[in-house]
Design a protein around this nucleic acid. Structure first.
Lengths: 145, 145
DNA sequence: GTAAGTGCAAATGTTTTGCCAGGTC
DNA sequence: GACCTGGCAAAACATTTGCACTTAC
């Protein structure tokens, strides 16, 4: 809990490679890219720095098909994923129109469907936060009853 | 590759419990629920049947926070996830309006953001499918270049 | 000099798989 | 009886973590 971190070469290269990559690499994929420049870097370091960069707001963590993918572009945008080859493309601009008509052809993709997820604080967690508590993020998960 | 499967008690119970569960259990969570009725069932069986039920279109596979979650409701709907406790609620009705205003309060949730993802076939995979080929789903992933 | 950060390896957690026994048609 | 399935345990992955050494500040 301090907020200050050092500017290491590893972190720098990780961020650079992620921002350069057109694809949305997984941690392991990015590890491969970074290793070309820093052959001794370890996978653990990549994971640790990605987590840090996400918390700093410098990169965005996505999630496709069970594995985490990272996006060096923090601008608000959506994604197009190919179910054939796994490729993920960016989609800028308001998706509202698209959602409405669910146009069959978007950026050359043949669209099969979409997934929309909102995230935030549920009523219980809002109460928990407001009423003293102090315990913010680490409440006991409300799992199946 | 047959298309027909037997109707086993395990599969039946798994589907029932999933449809009954208000939450969107993970495979392991569902395993716990099912085990109350079938104490000898194994986790592998739960996974195998879930995969089968997804392919049959009887259940929906979601994905939150790195783990797969399953939804017994196949109707088209979206989701609300609490970043505090991990709870996932259903959200029916057209989300278009919601997306537009990004109303701060949705079903009692304090909305912090959303994620929208389209999926389909990318241009390359469409071509690959149309031109002879036959090889449909298992093309080489277009990973980082 | 010192604490944050790294590399390495072992640990963790989730999902998949091989194999054989058992149930279903 | 053939063949789909289930149970079990091991394997395969992705990700996290403990620890001693390095390094940015």
């Amino acid at each position: 809990m301090n907020g200050f971190q050092r500017n290491t070469r590893q972190r720098q290269v990780i961020l650079e490679e992620l921002q350069r990559a057109a694809s949305h690499p997984t941690a392991v994929g990015l590890f491969g890219l970074v290793r070309r420049r820093l052959p001794k870097i370890s996978l653990g370091t990549v994971y640790r720095n990605l987590e840090l960069l996400v918390r700093m707001g410098a990169v965005q963590k996505l999630e496709f098909d069970g594995e985490a993918r990272f996006d060096g572009n923090v601008e608000r945008h959506d994604h197009l994923r190919c179910v054939g080859c796994g490729r993920v493309d960016d989609l800028f601009g308001p998706p509202l129109d698209l959602l409405g008509g669910e146009s069959d052809d978007l950026c050359g993709y043949e669209i099969l469907g979409h997934r929309l997820e909102f995230f935030g604080l549920c009523p219980a967690c809002r109460r928990r936060r407001n009423s003293g508590g102090g315990n913010g993020a680490t409440a006991a998960p409300t799992e199946e009853s």
